[in-house]
Every structure is written in C-alpha cells, then in structure tokens.
Design a protein around this nucleic acid. Structure first.
Lengths: 344, 344
DNA sequence: CTGAAAGCGCTTACAG
DNA sequence: CTGAAAGCGCTTACAG
C-alpha cells in the first residue's frame, strides 16, 4: 500500500452536531434531505455545514448503507479516439446518474486487464463496463468478476457469459456500404483489412457477403484480404489486394484507418482513390470528412454508445435479475467522395 | 442518491476468521502481509480466503486507516486524442503506484467542472490532477478544493494558486519551429491560429517572436492571425492570413489542426503547401506523419506527460509541504516535408 | 421532531 | 504469535 495519511483534520457530522447542539442523526437527516427535521434546525445545521466547509464522506456512507456510487469503466485502448469518445459518453451519463467513474485502461493486454479488474473490484463499484482487450480470456474474467456485480460488455463479443452486451451494428454497416457501391455500378468489390478472427471483422464480412449475394454476386476467396487494422499495414497489403482481386474496382474496408492506408497504397501505385478505385471505411473518424477525397464511411457516434452503455448498466444495477440484453447501436452511412460518385 | 443495495452477501474478514478459528485481527494481518503471523496460520487463512473468494474492501480499510487509494483525474476534453492519451498515461502510472483513477470529464465547461470536482471530492481522493476547462474560474476552484488535498494543474495556467503545474514547453517548441523555417531561408514568417488569450498560444507566440527577433526580424502586426484551434476555422481564415501578411512564405501554426486547416485553405487557392508555402504544426497528431506532404511539427508525447503528471502528484501526496513545482515537458521537433525542405 | 445505540468492513494499539 | 476492544464517518431502526 502506498496510500498516505490525509494531511488536514477533516470536519465530520460529529463536529457539526456538536456546534449545533444536535445529535449526529439529525445532521445526517439534514444531509440526506429528510423531511423529518424541523425547518429551523435544518437551517441552523445547513449554515454550520457551510461555515465549516463540511464535505460529505461518501465512502463511509456507502459502507454503512451497503451501497455503491461508482461504476468501473475498463477500456482496451484509450488512445483510440473511438474509445476515448466512448469513455467520455459513459462518464457523462454516469455523472448524470450521480455515479462516479473508476477508470481502468488495459492497452489491449489481457494480463493487465485482469490485474486492473481485480484492483477495481476491491473498490466495490456498483457495476463494470468492459470494453475487452483483444484475445481476452472469458473464463479468467468470469473467475475475477464472478456473479459479484453486473457487467456490461462493449464492442467485442466474449464467449459464454450471461452479461449484457452492446455492440455496433457491424453487419448492417458493412451491408450498407456494400449496397452503396453496388448501386454505383461496382461488381468486383473486395473486402479489405481487419483480423478475420475478430468478432467485429466477422460481422462486417457477413454484411458484405449478404449484400453481394443479394445482388447475385458470389465473391471469390481472393477478394477477402486480411490486415492489421492500422494504416501502415493496410498500405503495405495493397499490393496483395490488387494481385489477389485483379480487376476489382472497389473495396469495403474494415475501418477508416484501413481505408486510409489503402488510399495511400493506391496512390503509391498511381491509382487515384475515389475516381479510379472506390473505397469505403467504417467509424467516421474526424479525418474522414476532411481528407481528399473525403471518405464514405459509417458513422458510429461513440459518445452516444457510451451513454447507452452507461444507461444499460444502470438499468441492470436496478434490476439485477432481468434477462441479459444484447443491444446493437445504429450506424449511419455517410456518403462522401471516395466511391467514385462523380463517375455516375 | 441512486445507489443501490448490492445483490450478493459478501464475504468479510469475520467469515474467514470464523472458518479458520482465528480472530479477525489475524486475518487482517495475513491480508496485509504482516510477518507477525505464523506460517501455518497464514497458509490456512490464505487457503480459506481463496476458497471463499474473498474480496478486500478497500473503502472500509481506507476509512479505518484514514488513507486514500484513489486519485481524481479531471479532463477538459477527452475526445481530443492528446488528452485521451494523457489520461491513459496518468492511469497507467497511477495503477503502478497502486492507485485507482477517478475520472471526470468536463467538456470545456467551467460549470460542469465545478460540479464534477465537488462530486469527486466526496470520494476522498488522495489528490487531483486537473486539466482545466477553458475560462476556468481559479477562485471558484480554490473554494471547491480548498487546501483539502494536493492538486496538480496540467497544460493551462490557472492564476494565483500554489498548486503544482505541468505544461508543455510551448515557447521552446514554437522557437524551434521558427528557427527551422529561418534556417531554410524563410524571412516573412507568419504566426497563425489559436486564441491569443490562451496561455499556450501566448507562450507559442512568445517563442516565435523570440526566434524572429534573434534573427533580426521584427514581425509586423499583420503577421499574427488568430483562429479557433480547429481545422475548419483555420481553413476559413486562410484568406485573412494571405491578405494581412502579403508576400509571406511560411507560417508557424498554433497546432496541427490549424496547420491542416491552413493547408486545405492554401490548396483551395491553388497554393501548394510545402513547396510553395511552408507550414509547421504543434502536437504531432497521428495524421502529421501520414498526410501529403507530411507535417513538420512538435512531438509532445502526451502519454509521457500523463505519467509525469501522475508521478508529480504522488510525490506531492507523499510530501504535502514541499514547495510547489512548475515543470515543463520537453517537446521535440519532427522535421518532415511541409517546410519546403526540397527547395533548399 | 430529536437522540442514543448499533453496525457497515476493516485496522491497530494493547494485552497476553 | 494471537485475541478483545475500540474506532474510522456515516446511517438507521427504535424510543421518546
């Protein structure tokens, strides 16, 4: 333990009670806004609270009442603007519900994630919002968290739990993007980027395949090319895409970073993204609207997701025994200039 | 209060003590790793802790010991990757120090900031790391926080307090950028963007002026053009810059967003950024390395800043009476292609 | 409407 | 080496 004694003597209900000549119980009732206490007494006590700059000790109250006023938020990658914005939304909504956010970031490390959760659990949050690290061990998480408190899982599916789950509508998003390209006349459309074993990538591929097949096109195996979900790797794999999907005129990309990476790769090969090769993204990061050409992509509103996650968790805290929920956050196609619209 | 009763009966030291036939004191000593307890007893107790899946209640321990194991982190804008990365650094370092992070985000609203702080203070953190909202009221903050606990202010100067302060080396950064442009032969160099009344903007202008004067150039008033620190506004004010600083061949921009906005504005006027008009940024956001041309800018390593902030605060917690510190985080010039290097 | 007493889960002198 | 007792700051029946 590195914790340290506090430096200043703190004012307690006992101090206030003494100064006012009432009991601690009365002060407590005033603090909690009880109608039982006489208006005059209340006024006297409130004046004294202010005068002595009393600060409520919520930890003590929580201990006595067997309650919690915090929620733990565990984020896999806070340096990703999507998750940062999500965290901001969570914090905002929790604050409105008078809860405080206990933050933990795991940097995509399952080991750190377990350590972080073990530490947070000791602070007895009312519940946990978990955006899991890649390759999380669902069984180990079950062990750490048990059925001790409500858990809401965000974004990445975790196998075999009965926790609430909130995710983007990945499948629908990819379907919308693909349909948009089809409507523009593209036929040989690739699906580019992402790790095929991640749940979000699987779902986006599914949406892509669905749209293609509905249009009577059976994508060839070579049209599916994996990459890390980063710009650099996507750029590096552009050659692979062009080689394995010859004659393709468009790609539905796993996300915006992949799309921008592909655009870099195309340019390096003298292919003009947008007019000569259509590209779609996923996420609508801030660059998407500002790049040249601006990127057609799916807006996901991470802040709204965060608010939704907080509300789902608080619902669960209020109703621990309601059946587990699976909720999908809507995505919205943002049509911009990267799909050769000008070709039409 | 929205807090809710916890749903499961929780295992306490009393339960463990009973099961093992020892006193609660002994269990407590085992938990805290005291060497006083006999190895056999320890083993028995530890087995029982595991068997019953005991979870330490840190809040209760903190109450009894008059300690705290949390630090509040209040961030003005979590959706800005710079601050998100800073938060990640803080959380990382606090975690290593066995502290948990209480997050609060204020969305640049001084009112929200006061509400958030008032709420966090009730959770009795060991200290507060505050990245203030714009136009924060230093006096009001003093009132909310008092001398109750250590505060570290990050990034934005707050007038008239005796709190620790950590900021980027804004002046040096802008000086380095300006010197780089001067070395490339530029003479009519503008300073573009930012709100002139913000402390960071003031410091960056100062660095710019310092470098210019050292080179024997007195910038004309028209060479200083304000804008919001956003891409959109910067793009919109490009005309103003070209008009007020005619013949200028370069601009030191307040930050990367402004620089990218200016690049957009230049292109829209048929001026090629980099080769025809040199531009520098500040922040080194991820796009800086990837844009065409890549942006010469100052790297600030927000994660490192975050770690530094956490360490400064924990030092202060350990030594409440040490003199207040003002620390400046180093910045590093990243020379890339936006300054017409190819002209040389 | 107000007060005395017990207790939330933990720790810490103090005896033994 | 171990246990009984007091207490951190709060709340909550229960009397009055």
């Amino acid at each position: 333990m590195t914790a340290i004694k506090s430096r200043h003597k703190v004012v307690t209900v006992t101090d206030i009670a003494k100064s006012c000549g009432v009991s601690r119980a009365t002060v407590s009732l005033v603090l909690r806004g009880s109608p039982l206490v006489h208006a005059d007494t209340r006024a006297r006590v409130e004046a004294e609270l202010k005068r002595q700059r009393y600060v409520y000790n919520r930890a003590a109250a929580n201990l006595r009442r067997q309650t919690s006023s915090s929620v733990a938020l565990v984020i896999n990658d806070l340096s990703n603007p999507f998750f940062a914005e999500f965290a901001a939304g969570v914090d905002e909504a929790l604050g409105e519900g008078r809860y405080v956010t206990l933050l933990g970031s795991t940097a995509e490390s399952p080991e750190r994630q377990e350590a972080v959760l073990a530490s947070l659990v000791e602070h007895a949050p009312a519940g946990i919002i978990l955006s899991p690290a890649e390759h999380s061990d669902a069984v180990a998480l079950q062990r750490v968290l048990g059925a001790r408190m409500p858990v809401l899982v965000f974004n990445r599916e975790l196998s075999g739990h009965d926790w609430d789950f909130l995710a983007l509508d990945n499948q629908r998003g990819a379907r919308l993007a693909t349909e948009h390209l089809l409507a523009l006349g593209h036929r040989r459309i690739a699906f580019f980027g992402g790790h095929a074993d991640s749940s979000s990538c699987r779902q986006r591929r599914e949406g892509y395949l669905e749209a293609m097949r509905a249009a009577g096109i059976e994508p060839e195996p070579g049209w599916l090319v994996e990459s890390s979900p980063t710009r650099g790797d996507a750029a590096a794999r552009t050659a692979q895409l062009l080689e394995r999907a010859p004659g393709s005129t468009a790609a539905v990309c796993y996300n915006d970073n992949v799309a921008f990476g592909l655009m870099l790769g195309l340019r390096a090969r003298g292919v003009l993204p947008g007019s000569e090769f259509a590209v779609t993204g996923f996420d609508d990061i801030s660059e998407a609207a500002l790049s040249t050409p601006p990127l057609t992509t799916l807006a996901v509103q991470p802040r709204v997701c965060g608010r939704l996650a907080a509300e789902m968790l608080l619902d669960r805290v209020r109703e621990p025994d309601a059946p587990a929920r699976r909720v999908v956050a809507p995505v919205q196609l943002m049509v911009r200039g990267s799909c050769g619209e000008s070709m039409q």
